[in-house]
Design a protein around this nucleic acid. Sequence first.
DNA 1: CTGAAAGCGCTTACAG
DNA 2: CTGAAAGCGCTTACAG
Lengths: 335, 335
Amino acid sequence: MTTTIKDVAREAGCSPTTVSLVLNKQENRISEETKRKVIKAAEKLNYTRNELARNLVRKKSNLIAMIVPDLINPYYTEISNHIINGFAKLGYTVMVLSTNNDVRIEDSGLEILNNGFFEGGIAVSIDFENFKNKLNPKVYEKLVVLEEVQDIMEDIHVVTTDNYKGGRLAAKYLSDMGHKRLICCTSLDKVPNHEKRLEGFGSYLHEIGVEFDDYNSILRSNLEIDGIEMFAEYVISEDVTGVFCVNDLIALGLISGLRKRGKRVPEDVSIIGYDNAYLNRFYSSDLTSVDSQIKRISRGAINILTSLLDEEKCEKINLVPPILHEGETVKRIDE
Amino acid sequence: MTTTIKDVAREAGCSPTTVSLVLNKQENRISEETKRKVIKAAEKLNYTRNELARNLVRKKSNLIAMIVPDLINPYYTEISNHIINGFAKLGYTVMVLSTNNDVRIEDSGLEILNNGFFEGGIAVSIDFENFKNKLNPKVYEKLVVLEEVQDIMEDIHVVTTDNYKGGRLAAKYLSDMGHKRLICCTSLDKVPNHEKRLEGFGSYLHEIGVEFDDYNSILRSNLEIDGIEMFAEYVISEDVTGVFCVNDLIALGLISGLRKRGKRVPEDVSIIGYDNAYLNRFYSSDLTSVDSQIKRISRGAINILTSLLDEEKCEKINLVPPILHEGETVKRIDE
DNA sequence: CTGAAAGCGCTTACAG
DNA sequence: CTGAAAGCGCTTACAG
């Protein structure tokens, strides 16, 4: 029913070998005459090569799988974009699988990584335990993870923003601007990147003697819009002056929630996000944010994975230093 | 080097057939004893099945490919999300390929669709000509396109918002609110969805006698942030009172550009978008927008594609009626 | 309850 | 310049 190389061979009056050779542009040894016949036959029969069979023998697909937790957070889509474009230039096609925080989808993702259709993988913000249990160790050799390092995965290649430093940067900036009543807003699930940011944030405040404790100063919610609005309620009721949001999406949602309640940013509350995502620029106010340098992270990931694909050695861990982007959502205050 | 079914068979002391049977849970006929041995051997050798080989013979992968133009526009990511989740429930995994408006990546996408690894495809907003030329007609039978219909693709299944009607809805609303100096903002590339929206918009205005001509009333730019800011300049210099943006991202960018220039929305300029994307809710003002009912579109796509996968007949064209979402970015004016 | 054999659609030494 | 043959790693009638 589907036309194969054999059909083309029959139509062209030659062997399957010859067809394969011609179609793979290895036709230096084939006569022009035969070449033409083959191409004509292939066109006539509407032949398209079965890549499954091809890859089975070649063990090469030029395909890379990218696993992300969701497609809502612009950070993930932006980083995907860079990686797609970067690999396109190198002749690789990247397909992205978003687990949408569903373990079953994540498992399918791991299976896909295991099954050999994709030559390499990039995983953003994953469940390390699950990976460790279900991923074939051989896959590690062609995988780069974009998330705060965990001891649990000692064999893996990592590139990520320096979350700890980023958290400290945020804390320093807010306190330099005179803020003392601070909280953090983060996700309910303990994402390693986020936790490290909080750790850095807290550590800086402790050093300079500003009150900050995990129980009262860290707010958690699902990141649906209503959870984020709950943050707004709390900020208002507790008279907080500065908020560190572990990503930009939370920051934008929080600003929106505050404004709906008659509060102004930064006049009444100062907000700082993390990532400095491109999509922020479509937003009315210029969000102050710790820039995780998405482009550099992407480039790093591409470099490492290409090295791995070429079986070259390379550094295991690659921490990209964050930079503070001073927007207009943090105000200096004096008390 | 990679362990195969043969290795497992040798280790377990049985035939490859038996291993395959056990690992595919078709073990009703296999003795408990053997079963255990096989599973143990597989674990010991860290065996993972080669899906390439498997799919080659089964012609079944439970994988669906989704092709989108970019991952920046929240409309694409939101629709992807719904489709990923919907298919997950049905046991299919969806991987998305973003062409990033690069023909070469789009071509890879078409190749992937052709190559048989994916059982079905969903394509959002594509280049019809390119599809027609390069896609194996057999793929049409398992493909649904989410974009305004083109005569060029008569064989294809389509589900999309009723763009024409949506455009008219926007025009009616703005004119009902008293606006007469209107323009549209759209992309430089002629996306079928967008063009149809403009057509609907213009047609309504013509009917009620409001001035609107394609040359002076339709602004086009690349959808980078600077292009969109150029829109803002124009709106201000021409004293426009109402703007129809063919998608929400343009609308948000435009609002941001106007505010930077000291203009207020909706006090000075009224803005209406298209899609009513979820991400809008993280934005400070509630954007007035033609709701394309992304969920219904997604559900429609899932239904049709599952029918196609089951070789059932179904309707070719599925137009989802849009609904006006009244936010707070359009103001009534009277002159 | 189990296995030998054919076949999925391709590529690639090898021989001529 | 061209082709027969083996093999990629699996599944699935078929036979026993």
